[in-house]
Design a binder for these strands. Structure first.
Lengths: 224, 224
DNA sequence: TTGAAAATGAGTGTAAACACCCATTGTTTT
DNA sequence: AAAACAATGGGTGTTTACACTCATTTTCAA
């Protein structure tokens, strides 16, 4: 493997802007790496993948709309040649196991050094996976087998449509249905329909409940 | 203030290597900013400060050995001219309050855009602090000068009564006025009165707005 | 101990939320 | 070509939120 000749195409899905921008710069400054795109949520990720297929994807577990694990499942089904590296702040057994089961080729703590990240990318590119010694062969088998299957419809049933997210954010801004209608230039009846669908999908009982959901899921961010 | 002529010296204390390295690069690439040092924990930070005193310090709340809040207290005592910007993943009321009370000049969410970070650095450099609109100048004065313990809610025009907080929490649980009345064994008219007072004191426009306030101020906690 | 504020309760409204029903149009999946 | 779904819009209701008015009792601090 002569890396001098190869340039590895990388994609980033990460919701913290500074981390994302910083990581993109760091990776781009590596001669053999090129960042094809960087996105802040799961929906954007799936959209980008329609047009750009990097060899390596670095995905944070907690990203909005479609989380890192579900995104990985989708990617394994629709773009099986793309290798996903799951990146997370938390390294509990469940997270790591879920990552492996979803089809990720590597799990990386956010506490890792940058050189470890680069090594991981190279390992995944070269031999297809990179799990550290905590990973039993069974786990690797799990991640390499195509056992888990998830349909796009299933993922979308759980996730919200783009328009629904627009409405949700404006609800959290404290706007009424008619105010939201004005902002989005649509009928207030349409807004009510979106809101109705939001209630159905989120199982929220009212606006307060919906707001808590939005914040919990990262659709709406407190403090800026 | 002609920023062309000034180069602001910045220090970084952040335990996540990739974030730290990425942030350093991003800041260094700004013409008017220069990163004097970047460290991964509180002990290293205090050691570096013996030799290098940046004008601005960006400190993560959760760093090893000496956490961000205690480090800020030490810095306020020993290097009062250094302006600390507290950076955190979590933006709950307690964290923000602790940051302000420890003598930090700004609080910044890790979900903020890089441009917001740069703006914050410039604001702190120019006018000495940068808190969002929830922080009144009075609160900043109290927290920074008198070092008095005060909650954000207390700082609000009128603080919330115990009963109002009870009602606020139940609103966030998604209960209607009559459901809250049942839980608290009072009339739904009383609940409406409390809710009315809550709107007055918080300047919220509706339930969604009120919920955002409750979470922002730490009356209601998301992380179950 | 007196007066302020918290906590309680109510009458009468209007506006908004929320629950059902329904349809059309365009895109994407199968 | 058919099925599924997103996004749009509407009709007709009931319930709840929210605005403004008012009063009583308790509690706590000046």
């Amino acid at each position: 493997m002569n890396r001098q000749l190869d340039t590895i195409q990388v994609g980033i899905a990460e919701d913290h802007p500074v981390y994302r921008k910083g990581l993109k710069n760091l990776l781009d400054s590596e001669k053999h790496l090129n960042v094809l795109f960087d996105v802040s949520n799961g929906t954007e990720l799936m959209e980008q993948l329609r047009y750009f297929q990097p060899q390596i994807l670095i995905i944070d577990v907690r990203i909005p709309f479609i989380d890192g694990i579900n995104a990985t499942k989708l990617i394994k089904q629709n773009y099986p040649e793309i290798c996903v590296i799951i990146n997370s702040n938390y390294c509990d057994q469940k997270t790591i196991h879920d990552a492996a089961a979803s089809g990720a080729r590597a799990f990386l703590s956010k506490k890792s050094e940058f050189t470890v990240l680069v090594d991981t990318i190279e390992n995944v590119y070269d031999i297809g996976y990179s799990f550290d010694s905590d990973f039993t062969p069974e786990l690797i088998t799990i991640c390499c087998k195509e056992n888990k299957s998830i349909t796009l419809a299933e993922a979308h049933a759980k996730s919200l449509s783009l328009r629904e997210v627009d409405v949700l954010k404006l609800i959290c801004d404290g706007l009424s249905s008619s105010q939201i209608a004005d902002v989005l230039c649509i009928s207030h009846r349409t807004v009510e329909n979106h809101r109705r669908n939001l209630f159905e999908k989120t199982k929220a009982k009212n606006m307060a409940d919906l707001t808590v959901f939005a914040i919990k899921m990262g659709f709406y961010s407190i403090q800026g």
